[in-house]
Design a protein around this nucleic acid. Structure first.
Lengths: 230, 230
DNA sequence: ACCTGAACACCGTTCAAGT
DNA sequence: ACCTGAACACCGTTCAAGT
Protein backbone atom coordinates (compact mmCIF):
# COMPACT_ATOMS: atom_id res chain seq x y z
CA UNK A 1 0.00 0.00 0.00
CA UNK A 2 2.83 2.37 0.65
CA UNK A 3 5.90 3.08 -1.42
CA UNK A 4 8.98 1.11 -0.49
CA UNK A 5 11.31 3.39 -2.39
CA UNK A 6 13.88 4.68 0.14
CA UNK A 7 14.39 7.80 -1.96
CA UNK A 8 10.83 8.76 -1.32
CA UNK A 9 10.59 8.48 2.42
CA UNK A 10 7.04 8.38 3.60
CA UNK A 11 7.50 11.29 5.99
CA UNK A 12 7.81 13.66 3.07
CA UNK A 13 5.88 12.34 0.14
CA UNK A 14 2.63 10.47 0.41
CA UNK A 15 0.85 8.40 -2.16
CA UNK A 16 -2.13 10.68 -1.98
CA UNK A 17 -0.83 13.43 -4.21
CA UNK A 18 2.32 14.51 -2.51
CA UNK A 19 0.71 15.74 0.71
CA UNK A 20 3.27 15.70 3.48
CA UNK A 21 2.42 13.07 6.05
CA UNK A 22 2.53 14.33 9.59
CA UNK A 23 3.19 11.86 12.39
CA UNK A 24 0.06 10.50 13.99
CA UNK A 25 -1.19 11.99 17.24
CA UNK A 26 -4.51 12.18 19.07
CA UNK A 27 -4.61 15.87 18.28
CA UNK A 28 -4.20 15.21 14.56
CA UNK A 29 -6.73 12.40 14.54
CA UNK A 30 -9.41 14.46 16.25
CA UNK A 31 -8.92 17.51 14.05
CA UNK A 32 -8.91 15.39 10.91
CA UNK A 33 -12.14 13.73 12.01
CA UNK A 34 -13.80 17.07 12.66
CA UNK A 35 -12.59 18.44 9.35
CA UNK A 36 -14.01 15.40 7.60
CA UNK A 37 -17.33 15.85 9.38
CA UNK A 38 -17.48 19.48 8.36
CA UNK A 39 -16.53 18.92 4.74
CA UNK A 40 -18.32 15.73 3.89
CA UNK A 41 -21.10 15.26 6.37
CA UNK A 42 -21.87 12.86 9.12
CA UNK A 43 -21.33 9.69 7.13
CA UNK A 44 -17.74 10.68 6.43
CA UNK A 45 -16.65 10.42 10.02
CA UNK A 46 -15.79 6.77 10.31
CA UNK A 47 -12.61 5.34 11.69
CA UNK A 48 -11.78 4.04 8.27
CA UNK A 49 -12.30 7.36 6.51
CA UNK A 50 -10.27 9.22 9.13
CA UNK A 51 -7.51 6.65 8.80
CA UNK A 52 -7.61 6.94 5.02
CA UNK A 53 -7.37 10.72 5.23
CA UNK A 54 -4.30 10.24 7.38
CA UNK A 55 -2.92 7.83 4.83
CA UNK A 56 -2.92 4.82 7.13
CA UNK A 57 -5.03 1.82 8.03
CA UNK A 58 -7.88 1.85 10.55
CA UNK A 59 -5.96 -0.24 13.04
CA UNK A 60 -3.44 2.53 13.55
CA UNK A 61 -5.95 4.75 15.30
CA UNK A 62 -6.46 2.27 18.11
CA UNK A 63 -3.14 3.31 19.54
CA UNK A 64 -4.69 6.68 20.43
CA UNK A 65 -8.33 5.89 20.90
CA UNK A 66 -10.21 3.05 22.57
CA UNK A 67 -13.08 2.95 20.14
CA UNK A 68 -15.17 5.09 17.84
CA UNK A 69 -17.28 6.32 20.77
CA UNK A 70 -14.28 7.94 22.38
CA UNK A 71 -13.31 9.58 19.12
CA UNK A 72 -16.82 10.98 18.76
CA UNK A 73 -16.73 12.46 22.25
CA UNK A 74 -13.37 14.08 21.55
CA UNK A 75 -14.57 15.49 18.23
CA UNK A 76 -17.64 16.94 19.91
CA UNK A 77 -15.67 18.68 22.63
CA UNK A 78 -13.24 20.06 20.08
CA UNK A 79 -16.13 21.48 18.07
CA UNK A 80 -17.48 23.14 21.21
CA UNK A 81 -14.38 25.33 21.20
CA UNK A 82 -16.36 27.44 18.76
CA UNK A 83 -19.09 28.29 21.26
CA UNK A 84 -18.97 31.90 22.46
CA UNK A 85 -19.57 31.83 26.18
CA UNK A 86 -18.98 35.49 26.96
CA UNK A 87 -21.09 38.37 25.76
CA UNK A 88 -20.85 42.00 26.85
CA UNK A 89 -21.38 41.86 30.59
CA UNK A 90 -23.36 45.07 30.24
CA UNK A 91 -26.42 43.26 28.92
CA UNK A 92 -28.85 41.38 31.12
CA UNK A 93 -28.28 37.74 32.10
CA UNK A 94 -31.19 36.55 30.02
CA UNK A 95 -29.84 38.14 26.89
CA UNK A 96 -26.39 36.72 27.47
CA UNK A 97 -27.65 33.22 28.25
CA UNK A 98 -29.73 33.30 25.10
CA UNK A 99 -26.67 34.39 23.13
CA UNK A 100 -24.62 31.55 24.59
CA UNK A 101 -27.23 28.94 23.73
CA UNK A 102 -27.71 30.41 20.26
CA UNK A 103 -23.99 30.11 19.72
CA UNK A 104 -24.11 26.48 20.89
CA UNK A 105 -27.02 25.86 18.55
CA UNK A 106 -25.15 27.40 15.63
CA UNK A 107 -22.07 25.28 16.27
CA UNK A 108 -24.17 22.12 16.26
CA UNK A 109 -26.34 23.20 13.37
CA UNK A 110 -23.39 24.46 11.35
CA UNK A 111 -21.54 21.21 10.87
CA UNK A 112 -23.64 18.36 9.56
CA UNK A 113 -24.11 15.43 11.86
CA UNK A 114 -22.65 17.16 14.88
CA UNK A 115 -25.99 17.71 16.57
CA UNK A 116 -26.88 14.05 16.30
CA UNK A 117 -23.43 13.18 17.53
CA UNK A 118 -24.08 15.44 20.53
CA UNK A 119 -27.32 13.53 21.19
CA UNK A 120 -25.55 10.23 21.59
CA UNK A 121 -22.24 11.33 23.15
CA UNK A 122 -21.80 13.72 26.04
CA UNK A 123 -18.79 15.96 25.75
CA UNK A 124 -16.81 15.87 28.95
CA UNK A 125 -13.78 17.86 27.88
CA UNK A 126 -12.41 21.33 28.58
CA UNK A 127 -14.76 23.10 26.18
CA UNK A 128 -17.86 21.49 27.63
CA UNK A 129 -16.71 22.51 31.09
CA UNK A 130 -16.17 26.07 29.92
CA UNK A 131 -19.76 26.14 28.67
CA UNK A 132 -21.19 24.71 31.88
CA UNK A 133 -19.17 27.12 34.00
CA UNK A 134 -20.47 30.09 32.03
CA UNK A 135 -24.06 28.88 32.19
CA UNK A 136 -23.88 28.36 35.93
CA UNK A 137 -22.60 31.93 36.29
CA UNK A 138 -25.45 33.36 34.27
CA UNK A 139 -28.08 31.29 36.09
CA UNK A 140 -26.61 32.51 39.37
CA UNK A 141 -27.05 36.08 38.13
CA UNK A 142 -30.61 35.13 37.32
CA UNK A 143 -31.10 34.39 41.01
CA UNK A 144 -31.36 30.61 40.76
CA UNK A 145 -30.08 28.54 43.66
CA UNK A 146 -27.19 26.16 42.99
CA UNK A 147 -29.11 22.87 42.79
CA UNK A 148 -31.71 24.35 40.46
CA UNK A 149 -29.01 25.91 38.29
CA UNK A 150 -27.20 22.58 38.08
CA UNK A 151 -30.25 20.78 36.74
CA UNK A 152 -31.16 23.76 34.57
CA UNK A 153 -27.85 23.44 32.73
CA UNK A 154 -28.81 19.93 31.76
CA UNK A 155 -32.34 20.90 30.76
CA UNK A 156 -31.19 23.79 28.59
CA UNK A 157 -28.37 21.99 26.81
CA UNK A 158 -30.46 18.89 26.29
CA UNK A 159 -33.22 20.89 24.70
CA UNK A 160 -30.97 22.94 22.46
CA UNK A 161 -29.10 19.83 21.38
CA UNK A 162 -32.35 18.07 20.61
CA UNK A 163 -33.80 20.89 18.57
CA UNK A 164 -30.54 21.25 16.64
CA UNK A 165 -30.61 17.54 15.87
CA UNK A 166 -34.22 17.77 14.75
CA UNK A 167 -33.58 20.77 12.52
CA UNK A 168 -30.46 19.18 11.03
CA UNK A 169 -32.49 16.15 10.06
CA UNK A 170 -34.90 18.19 8.03
CA UNK A 171 -32.32 20.07 6.03
CA UNK A 172 -31.88 18.64 2.56
CA UNK A 173 -35.15 16.79 2.50
CA UNK A 174 -37.35 17.23 -0.53
CA UNK A 175 -40.22 18.49 1.53
CA UNK A 176 -38.47 20.59 4.19
CA UNK A 177 -41.13 19.65 6.68
CA UNK A 178 -40.61 15.99 6.07
CA UNK A 179 -43.22 13.29 5.92
CA UNK A 180 -45.18 14.80 8.81
CA UNK A 181 -46.57 17.58 6.67
CA UNK A 182 -47.77 15.01 4.16
CA UNK A 183 -49.47 12.98 6.86
CA UNK A 184 -51.05 16.07 8.43
CA UNK A 185 -52.63 16.97 5.12
CA UNK A 186 -54.50 13.67 5.11
CA UNK A 187 -55.79 13.84 8.68
CA UNK A 188 -59.56 13.81 8.82
CA UNK A 189 -61.40 16.31 10.98
CA UNK A 190 -63.70 13.61 12.27
CA UNK A 191 -60.93 11.39 13.54
CA UNK A 192 -58.43 13.90 14.93
CA UNK A 193 -60.29 17.21 15.10
CA UNK A 194 -57.59 19.19 16.95
CA UNK A 195 -54.73 17.92 14.82
CA UNK A 196 -56.80 18.76 11.77
CA UNK A 197 -57.61 22.26 12.93
CA UNK A 198 -54.00 23.04 13.88
CA UNK A 199 -52.33 21.16 11.03
CA UNK A 200 -50.65 24.30 9.74
CA UNK A 201 -49.58 25.53 13.16
CA UNK A 202 -47.96 22.21 14.03
CA UNK A 203 -45.36 22.67 11.31
CA UNK A 204 -45.23 26.45 11.15
CA UNK A 205 -42.23 28.59 11.93
CA UNK A 206 -38.60 28.20 11.02
CA UNK A 207 -35.90 26.92 13.33
CA UNK A 208 -34.94 30.32 14.69
CA UNK A 209 -38.46 31.28 15.67
CA UNK A 210 -39.16 28.02 17.42
CA UNK A 211 -35.82 28.13 19.15
CA UNK A 212 -36.40 31.62 20.50
CA UNK A 213 -39.92 30.81 21.62
CA UNK A 214 -38.93 27.58 23.35
CA UNK A 215 -36.03 29.23 25.13
CA UNK A 216 -38.44 31.84 26.40
CA UNK A 217 -40.71 29.14 27.76
CA UNK A 218 -37.80 27.39 29.46
CA UNK A 219 -36.33 30.50 31.04
CA UNK A 220 -39.71 31.70 32.22
CA UNK A 221 -40.39 28.31 33.74
CA UNK A 222 -37.01 28.24 35.45
CA UNK A 223 -37.50 31.69 36.94
CA UNK A 224 -40.82 30.56 38.43
CA UNK A 225 -39.60 27.25 39.78
CA UNK A 226 -39.17 27.08 43.54
CA UNK A 227 -35.64 26.56 44.84
CA UNK A 228 -34.47 23.01 45.31
CA UNK A 229 -32.91 22.25 48.64
CA UNK A 230 -29.61 20.43 48.50
CA UNK B 1 -30.03 -21.70 1.43
CA UNK B 2 -33.51 -23.16 1.50
CA UNK B 3 -34.58 -26.73 1.14
CA UNK B 4 -35.56 -27.83 -2.32
CA UNK B 5 -37.34 -30.92 -1.15
CA UNK B 6 -40.88 -30.70 -2.52
CA UNK B 7 -42.11 -32.84 0.36
CA UNK B 8 -41.15 -30.16 2.78
CA UNK B 9 -42.83 -27.11 1.33
CA UNK B 10 -41.45 -23.93 2.74
CA UNK B 11 -44.82 -22.61 3.83
CA UNK B 12 -45.04 -25.22 6.55
CA UNK B 13 -41.58 -26.19 7.68
CA UNK B 14 -38.69 -23.79 7.96
CA UNK B 15 -35.02 -24.49 8.19
CA UNK B 16 -34.87 -22.70 11.50
CA UNK B 17 -36.20 -25.44 13.68
CA UNK B 18 -39.56 -26.20 12.21
CA UNK B 19 -41.12 -22.80 12.89
CA UNK B 20 -43.95 -22.28 10.47
CA UNK B 21 -43.11 -19.59 7.98
CA UNK B 22 -45.82 -17.02 7.60
CA UNK B 23 -46.05 -15.14 4.31
CA UNK B 24 -44.23 -11.83 4.32
CA UNK B 25 -46.17 -8.64 4.89
CA UNK B 26 -45.38 -5.14 6.08
CA UNK B 27 -47.28 -5.91 9.25
CA UNK B 28 -45.16 -8.98 9.94
CA UNK B 29 -41.91 -7.21 9.12
CA UNK B 30 -42.61 -4.30 11.45
CA UNK B 31 -43.71 -6.47 14.35
CA UNK B 32 -40.72 -8.77 13.91
CA UNK B 33 -38.40 -5.77 13.93
CA UNK B 34 -39.95 -4.39 17.10
CA UNK B 35 -39.80 -7.78 18.75
CA UNK B 36 -36.13 -8.05 17.86
CA UNK B 37 -35.48 -4.58 19.26
CA UNK B 38 -37.20 -5.47 22.50
CA UNK B 39 -35.52 -8.81 22.95
CA UNK B 40 -32.00 -8.16 21.77
CA UNK B 41 -31.43 -4.43 21.91
CA UNK B 42 -30.86 -1.66 19.43
CA UNK B 43 -28.10 -3.39 17.51
CA UNK B 44 -30.40 -6.27 16.66
CA UNK B 45 -32.71 -4.22 14.52
CA UNK B 46 -31.01 -4.33 11.16
CA UNK B 47 -32.59 -5.22 7.88
CA UNK B 48 -30.43 -8.29 7.75
CA UNK B 49 -31.39 -9.50 11.21
CA UNK B 50 -35.05 -8.90 10.59
CA UNK B 51 -34.79 -10.78 7.31
CA UNK B 52 -32.97 -13.63 9.02
CA UNK B 53 -35.64 -13.82 11.70
CA UNK B 54 -38.18 -14.12 8.92
CA UNK B 55 -36.07 -16.82 7.29
CA UNK B 56 -35.36 -14.90 4.15
CA UNK B 57 -32.70 -12.66 2.61
CA UNK B 58 -32.41 -8.92 3.19
CA UNK B 59 -33.42 -8.12 -0.37
CA UNK B 60 -36.90 -9.49 0.23
CA UNK B 61 -37.82 -6.68 2.59
CA UNK B 62 -37.40 -4.06 -0.09
CA UNK B 63 -40.67 -5.14 -1.59
CA UNK B 64 -42.44 -3.68 1.45
CA UNK B 65 -40.13 -0.93 2.58
CA UNK B 66 -38.12 1.74 0.75
CA UNK B 67 -35.17 1.70 3.11
CA UNK B 68 -34.18 1.14 6.72
CA UNK B 69 -35.28 4.67 7.66
CA UNK B 70 -38.85 3.90 6.70
CA UNK B 71 -38.77 0.68 8.69
CA UNK B 72 -37.51 2.57 11.73
CA UNK B 73 -40.31 5.10 11.48
CA UNK B 74 -42.87 2.32 11.23
CA UNK B 75 -41.39 0.46 14.19
CA UNK B 76 -41.46 3.62 16.27
CA UNK B 77 -45.10 4.33 15.53
CA UNK B 78 -46.02 0.77 16.28
CA UNK B 79 -44.27 0.99 19.63
CA UNK B 80 -46.22 4.15 20.41
CA UNK B 81 -49.36 2.02 20.47
CA UNK B 82 -48.32 1.33 24.06
CA UNK B 83 -48.66 4.94 25.18
CA UNK B 84 -51.66 5.56 27.39
CA UNK B 85 -53.23 8.78 26.24
CA UNK B 86 -56.31 8.78 28.43
CA UNK B 87 -56.36 9.06 32.18
CA UNK B 88 -59.41 9.52 34.39
CA UNK B 89 -60.95 12.73 33.15
CA UNK B 90 -61.74 13.58 36.75
CA UNK B 91 -58.17 14.64 37.49
CA UNK B 92 -56.74 18.00 36.47
CA UNK B 93 -55.24 18.56 33.02
CA UNK B 94 -51.74 18.92 34.44
CA UNK B 95 -51.90 15.58 36.14
CA UNK B 96 -53.23 13.86 33.03
CA UNK B 97 -50.68 15.49 30.75
CA UNK B 98 -47.91 14.41 33.08
CA UNK B 99 -49.30 10.88 33.06
CA UNK B 100 -49.38 10.85 29.27
CA UNK B 101 -45.79 12.01 28.98
CA UNK B 102 -44.66 9.59 31.67
CA UNK B 103 -46.27 6.80 29.70
CA UNK B 104 -44.49 7.97 26.56
CA UNK B 105 -41.23 8.09 28.49
CA UNK B 106 -41.75 4.57 29.80
CA UNK B 107 -42.46 3.20 26.34
CA UNK B 108 -39.24 4.72 25.02
CA UNK B 109 -37.22 3.85 28.07
CA UNK B 110 -38.63 0.35 28.26
CA UNK B 111 -37.33 -1.02 25.00
CA UNK B 112 -33.63 -0.53 24.43
CA UNK B 113 -32.65 1.72 21.56
CA UNK B 114 -36.18 2.97 20.97
CA UNK B 115 -35.53 6.40 22.49
CA UNK B 116 -32.55 6.97 20.26
CA UNK B 117 -34.56 5.75 17.33
CA UNK B 118 -37.19 8.32 18.26
CA UNK B 119 -34.51 11.01 18.24
CA UNK B 120 -33.59 10.36 14.64
CA UNK B 121 -36.95 9.38 13.18
CA UNK B 122 -40.23 11.15 13.66
CA UNK B 123 -43.21 8.88 13.91
CA UNK B 124 -45.93 10.05 11.59
CA UNK B 125 -48.35 7.18 11.91
CA UNK B 126 -51.71 6.63 13.59
CA UNK B 127 -50.30 6.21 17.07
CA UNK B 128 -48.27 9.40 16.92
CA UNK B 129 -51.38 11.24 15.77
CA UNK B 130 -53.37 9.78 18.65
CA UNK B 131 -50.75 11.14 21.06
CA UNK B 132 -50.69 14.59 19.49
CA UNK B 133 -54.48 14.77 19.47
CA UNK B 134 -54.64 13.94 23.17
CA UNK B 135 -51.93 16.43 24.06
CA UNK B 136 -53.64 19.21 22.13
CA UNK B 137 -56.84 18.47 24.03
CA UNK B 138 -55.11 18.68 27.40
CA UNK B 139 -53.26 21.86 26.49
CA UNK B 140 -56.56 23.34 25.41
CA UNK B 141 -57.97 22.48 28.83
CA UNK B 142 -54.94 24.23 30.27
CA UNK B 143 -56.09 27.38 28.56
CA UNK B 144 -53.42 27.58 25.90
CA UNK B 145 -54.31 29.06 22.54
CA UNK B 146 -54.04 26.85 19.46
CA UNK B 147 -50.73 28.10 18.04
CA UNK B 148 -49.03 27.91 21.42
CA UNK B 149 -50.41 24.43 22.03
CA UNK B 150 -49.16 23.30 18.63
CA UNK B 151 -45.60 24.33 19.36
CA UNK B 152 -45.88 23.10 22.94
CA UNK B 153 -46.58 19.57 21.68
CA UNK B 154 -43.27 19.65 19.87
CA UNK B 155 -41.40 21.12 22.83
CA UNK B 156 -42.77 18.56 25.27
CA UNK B 157 -42.28 15.49 23.11
CA UNK B 158 -38.84 16.61 22.02
CA UNK B 159 -37.75 17.07 25.60
CA UNK B 160 -39.16 13.80 26.85
CA UNK B 161 -37.65 11.93 23.91
CA UNK B 162 -34.28 13.53 24.55
CA UNK B 163 -34.24 12.74 28.25
CA UNK B 164 -35.30 9.16 27.56
CA UNK B 165 -32.45 8.82 25.06
CA UNK B 166 -30.00 10.26 27.55
CA UNK B 167 -31.15 7.97 30.34
CA UNK B 168 -31.09 4.93 28.07
CA UNK B 169 -27.51 5.70 27.18
CA UNK B 170 -26.41 5.57 30.79
CA UNK B 171 -28.05 2.29 31.62
CA UNK B 172 -25.58 -0.55 31.65
CA UNK B 173 -22.50 1.60 31.98
CA UNK B 174 -20.02 0.69 34.65
CA UNK B 175 -20.25 4.07 36.27
CA UNK B 176 -23.96 4.81 35.94
CA UNK B 177 -23.16 8.51 35.68
CA UNK B 178 -20.79 7.93 32.83
CA UNK B 179 -17.50 9.64 32.15
CA UNK B 180 -18.86 13.03 33.23
CA UNK B 181 -18.75 12.12 36.90
CA UNK B 182 -15.11 11.13 36.51
CA UNK B 183 -14.26 14.41 34.83
CA UNK B 184 -16.18 16.43 37.40
CA UNK B 185 -14.15 14.88 40.17
CA UNK B 186 -10.97 16.26 38.65
CA UNK B 187 -12.24 19.80 38.07
CA UNK B 188 -10.17 22.37 39.97
CA UNK B 189 -11.86 25.05 42.01
CA UNK B 190 -9.50 27.68 40.64
CA UNK B 191 -10.32 26.96 37.02
CA UNK B 192 -14.05 26.26 37.10
CA UNK B 193 -15.24 27.41 40.54
CA UNK B 194 -18.96 26.97 39.95
CA UNK B 195 -18.66 23.58 38.32
CA UNK B 196 -16.42 22.52 41.19
CA UNK B 197 -18.83 23.75 43.86
CA UNK B 198 -21.85 22.10 42.20
CA UNK B 199 -20.11 18.96 40.98
CA UNK B 200 -22.40 16.72 43.01
CA UNK B 201 -25.57 18.55 42.10
CA UNK B 202 -24.78 18.37 38.39
CA UNK B 203 -25.11 14.59 38.42
CA UNK B 204 -27.55 14.15 41.30
CA UNK B 205 -31.02 12.71 41.05
CA UNK B 206 -32.32 9.70 39.24
CA UNK B 207 -34.20 9.81 35.97
CA UNK B 208 -37.63 10.02 37.54
CA UNK B 209 -36.80 12.98 39.74
CA UNK B 210 -35.20 14.95 36.93
CA UNK B 211 -38.06 14.10 34.62
CA UNK B 212 -40.69 15.31 37.06
CA UNK B 213 -38.77 18.48 37.85
CA UNK B 214 -38.14 19.35 34.21
CA UNK B 215 -41.76 18.73 33.27
CA UNK B 216 -42.77 21.10 36.03
CA UNK B 217 -40.46 23.76 34.62
CA UNK B 218 -41.84 23.28 31.12
CA UNK B 219 -45.49 23.35 32.12
CA UNK B 220 -45.00 26.36 34.36
CA UNK B 221 -43.22 28.14 31.54
CA UNK B 222 -45.95 27.27 29.07
CA UNK B 223 -48.69 28.51 31.38
CA UNK B 224 -46.89 31.87 31.69
CA UNK B 225 -46.13 32.31 28.01
CA UNK B 226 -48.23 34.92 26.20
CA UNK B 227 -50.52 33.65 23.45
CA UNK B 228 -49.14 33.46 19.95
CA UNK B 229 -51.31 35.01 17.30
CA UNK B 230 -51.89 32.89 14.23
C1' DA C 1 5.87 1.90 21.64
C1' DC C 2 4.03 2.67 17.40
C1' DC C 3 2.30 1.21 13.13
C1' DT C 4 0.49 -2.00 9.68
C1' DG C 5 -2.02 -5.57 6.44
C1' DA C 6 -5.11 -8.82 6.60
C1' DA C 7 -8.90 -10.93 8.41
C1' DC C 8 -13.42 -11.28 10.89
C1' DA C 9 -18.05 -10.40 11.43
C1' DC C 10 -21.03 -7.40 10.36
C1' DC C 11 -23.90 -3.37 7.65
C1' DG C 12 -27.60 -1.29 3.68
C1' DT C 13 -28.65 -1.56 -0.99
C1' DT C 14 -28.86 -3.18 -5.86
C1' DC C 15 -29.61 -6.27 -9.51
C1' DA C 16 -30.30 -10.06 -12.47
C1' DA C 17 -32.69 -14.14 -12.17
C1' DG C 18 -36.24 -16.97 -10.75
C1' DT C 19 -41.39 -18.15 -9.71
C1' DA D 1 -45.93 -9.17 -8.20
C1' DC D 2 -43.17 -11.31 -5.06
C1' DC D 3 -39.03 -13.40 -3.64
C1' DT D 4 -34.17 -14.70 -3.84
C1' DG D 5 -28.77 -15.35 -4.02
C1' DA D 6 -25.03 -13.09 -4.93
C1' DA D 7 -22.48 -9.14 -5.24
C1' DC D 8 -21.03 -4.32 -4.07
C1' DA D 9 -19.25 -0.98 -1.19
C1' DC D 10 -18.98 -0.09 3.04
C1' DC D 11 -18.53 -0.53 8.69
C1' DG D 12 -15.69 -1.30 13.72
C1' DT D 13 -12.49 -4.16 15.81
C1' DT D 14 -8.81 -7.65 16.54
C1' DC D 15 -4.52 -9.76 15.91
C1' DA D 16 -0.15 -11.36 14.49
C1' DA D 17 3.65 -9.35 12.49
C1' DG D 18 6.73 -5.81 11.61
C1' DT D 19 9.84 -1.61 12.95
Amino acid sequence: MRTKNPFEPRAVVSRRGGRVKKPLSLELIVSTALELLRREGSDAMSLRRVAAALDTGPASLYVYVDDVLELEALVLDRALAGVRVTAKPTSAWRRRLTALLESYFQVLFGTPGLARLAMRRIAAGPNALRMVEAMLGLLDEAGLDGPTAAWAVDLLTLYVTAIAAEQTERVGELDPLGPIAAVLRTVKATEHPRVHRLRDELVSGCGDQRFAWALDVLLTGLAQTPARKR
